[in-house]
Amino acid sequence: MATKSSKEIDAFAQAPLTALMPSVGSLETLKNLKSFIFARYEKIDSYRQTAISRNERVSEQTQAELDMLLEVLEFLKMSPSKEAR
């Protein structure tokens, strides 16, 4: 069986389970999605704020999506106001 580059073998040696996870995207391309990510964050945060103002529960799904978007925005150095958290 052919082997791949030594870089991949090193990654396997360090963290075999992580090496089994497919690498399917690109951080460079993610950087091109800044506008989309920010717009999406604002939209979902607006849902959240509306729910809070109506004393409604913010769903776990919505909160999970917001937490994810905040991580992406922070990585992209586009953190929204802390108040939004």
């Binding site: 990654a11 963290a15 992580t18 399917v24 995207g25 951080l27 391309t29 993610l30 999605l33 992406v72």
Partner: peptide, 11 residues
């Protein structure tokens, strides 16, 4: 691409 960021954080 978002998933890839999670993978990057994990690594």
């Amino acid at each position: 691409h978002i998933y890839e960021l999670g993978r990057f954080f994990l690594e």
